[in-house]
């Protein structure tokens, strides 16, 4: 007997909410990036889990693979941006970056 699909969904929901909380709480851009990765993984877990409901096609798993690709791109561009901000401000704390206001 395989464990319930719903338990996977609960875990995904938990990861998603934790990721969102990390993004809101942390005052460091790289930490926020970790939170975003958690959120993406929550979606992936959902997709793979749901694929068990529809075993005829592998749509969910295919989507999950593409999400991993996109996550790589996002991490690369994101870190390049963080590094550049770092060069200018010598910090990766968003609150200390406040040239733009309004």
């Amino acid at each position: 007997m395989m464990p319930s699909l719903q338990h996977l969904l609960y875990l995904a929901a938990f990861l998603f909410c934790t990721g969102l909380a990390v993004v809101m709480v942390k005052r460091n851009t790289i930490m926020m990036l970790l939170g975003i990765e958690l959120m993406l993984n929550a979606s992936n877990l959902n997709l793979v889990a749901f694929n068990r409901l529809y075993p005829a096609s592998l749509d969910g798993q295919m989507f999950a693979l593409f999400v991993i690709i996109v996550a790589v791109c996002e991490a690369a561009v994101g870190l390049a941006i963080v590094l550049r901000v770092y060069q200018h401000y010598q910090t990766s704390v968003p609150d200390e970056i406040s040239e733009l206001k309004g």
């Binding site: 464990p3 996977l8 875990l11 793979v48 889990a49 694929n51 068990r52 798993q61």
Partner: peptide
């Protein structure tokens, strides 16, 4: 590991 247990070895 959970993926493996959900029949998604490649993922």
């Amino acid at each position: 590991a959970l993926y493996v247990l959900s029949f998604a070895e490649f993922v």
